[in-house]
């Protein structure tokens, strides 16, 4: 099985680490580079600072955990989405903007390929794990809006990514698609 994570920032990198027990090849798509400020909330280590996030996560999983992984250090676009996602058995959307989420949804619905989304509120109080059939990509309040500067939302990110990993693992084992809402007071299956 090949699982492709689209976006390996706070949610994607942490969820991927929690999928390292699966008998699957993990693929990562992200054009961004690891910065020092990311270390507080993302699954990257200090020697990865300056590296491409997809490549850094691949190296960490390979070197520290012996996991087979693939890295695509590019921005997902209309021109390359088919190339990058065509062989995926499952796509995990952890992007941080509506435009990219819609691009992934459009491809996966047309192919079709199973797709699960994870998403976080700006104030770090709430998150969603939702399979594509019921997912609507919420817009940012303004383009480039940032969240979780300095890792202040790490506890919720941990809860949300553990829930996402659980939903992925349930899908791999039994093809079930379980949606969840996550807040610091608990996790609700929806």
């Amino acid at each position: 099985m090949r699982i492709v994570f689209c976006g390996v920032g706070a949610l994607g990198s942490s969820a991927a680490m929690l999928c390292r027990n699966l008998d699957a090849t993990l693929g990562f798509v992200d054009f961004d580079r690891v910065e020092s400020k990311n270390l507080a909330s993302q699954a990257f280590v200090k020697p990865s600072v300056g590296k491409n996030k997809a490549e850094a996560l691949k190296l960490q999983l390979s070197n520290f955990h012996g996991i087979k992984a693939e890295a695509f250090g590019v921005r997902l676009t209309d021109d390359n989405v088919a190339t990058l996602l065509d062989k995926a058995d499952l796509v995990v959307d952890c992007f941080d903007n509506q435009k990219s989420r819609l691009l992934v949804s459009g491809f996966c619905r047309a192919k079709p390929t199973p797709l699960v989304h994870a998403a976080l509120a700006a104030d770090g109080s709430f998150g969603l794990v939702r399979w594509d059939a019921r997912f609507v990509a919420d817009p940012e309040d303004h383009e480039g809006q940032a969240t979780c500067e300095g890792g202040e939302h790490l506890p919720l990110i941990g809860l949300l990514t553990a829930t996402l990993a659980r939903s992925i693992q349930d899908f791999v084992k039994s093809a079930t698609e379980r949606d969840f809402m996550v807040s610091l007071s608990g996790v609700i299956e929806t």
Binding site: S41, D96, G127, E140, T147
Partner: peptide, 27 residues
């Protein structure tokens, strides 16, 4: 806030009022 409307596991109607969730990654 976003209003989601789903059928629950036993077919009951459910309405969820929740914050927007535009994010997945840190910048």
């Amino acid at each position: 806030y976003v209003v989601d409307r789903f059928d629950g596991p036993q077919g009951q109607k459910r309405i969820y009022l929740r914050p927007k969730v535009p994010f997945g990654a840190d910048r």
